[in-house]
Amino acid sequence: MYQKIMVPVDDSAASMRALHEAIDLAKLCQATLRAVHVVDLAQFSWGGTGYLQSEEVRKAIESAGEKVLARTTDLLNHENIRHETAILESAGDKIANLIVDDAHANQVDLLVMGTHGFSGIMHALMGSVAEGVLRQADMPVMLLRVRKDG
């Protein structure tokens, strides 16, 4: 079955749903869970490189990512799951590419991701990292959809 399961994590409900599903699968398969958090440094460049090079901004972004991974690690320790964590940095790279490349480099055999299930104009504006991963990955990808009611 699966030996290494990867789940990208952030603070969203979709990510938390994916993390809990990945934990359940890791328990069933006695697999290692690789939790990654992507920090997109390009979102803070605002059309130039000045902000991107600011050490304070970079430290704040990394600190936020470390907090997400610390909470994830606490949960994985509590659930007694073998795990590893990593922060992946994007400086304008496609996030889907980073995730798939990291999965290959770390011999992941299942990707579990949450998706917000946007469609229409929201999908056009927001894009979909999950869709990009699904198109590129040559390993199984499990997408878990979370929709906000309202």
Rank of each mutant, 00 (worst) to 15 (best):
E89K: 10
M1F: 01
T85F: 11
G117P: 03
D40A: 03
E66V: 04
R71K: 14
F44D: 01
E21T: 13
T49N: 10
V141L: 13
A14E: 08
E66H: 10
Q3Y: 04
R71C: 12
L98W: 07
A86Y: 13
I87T: 11
P140Q: 13
V141D: 10
K94G: 03
M142I: 04
I61R: 14
Q136C: 03
S128R: 07
M1D: 06
A35M: 11
E21F: 05
Y51A: 12
I99P: 01
A18K: 05
E89N: 07
D109I: 02
M142N: 07
M122F: 06
S119A: 01
A35S: 13
A91Q: 14
G47M: 01
V57P: 00
K59F: 00
D149N: 06
W46F: 14
G114R: 06
S128F: 09
R82W: 01
I5F: 13
R58Q: 15
I95Q: 07
S90R: 06
L98F: 09
E131V: 00
A22M: 03
S12G: 07
I121C: 02
L19K: 10
S54W: 09
R17T: 05
G150K: 04
L75Q: 09
G47S: 04
L41N: 10
T115A: 14
D93R: 05
H83V: 09
F44C: 01
Q53I: 08
A14K: 01
E131P: 06
Y51C: 05
H123M: 10
G117D: 00
D101F: 04
Y2S: 02
V57R: 05
L134S: 09
D10I: 07
K148Q: 05
A70R: 15
E56I: 08
D10G: 00
M1C: 04
R147C: 04
A64Y: 06
L88Y: 13
S90E: 08
V9P: 00
A64R: 14
L134D: 05
A14R: 03
V38W: 09
A22Q: 07
A35V: 10
H104K: 15
M6C: 15
E21K: 11
V112S: 07
L41Y: 06
E21A: 09
Y51F: 14
V7C: 05
N80I: 07
T49H: 06
H104I: 11
H123N: 11
L143N: 02
V9I: 14
G132Y: 01
I61C: 10
V36A: 05
G48Y: 00
I5G: 11
A70P: 02
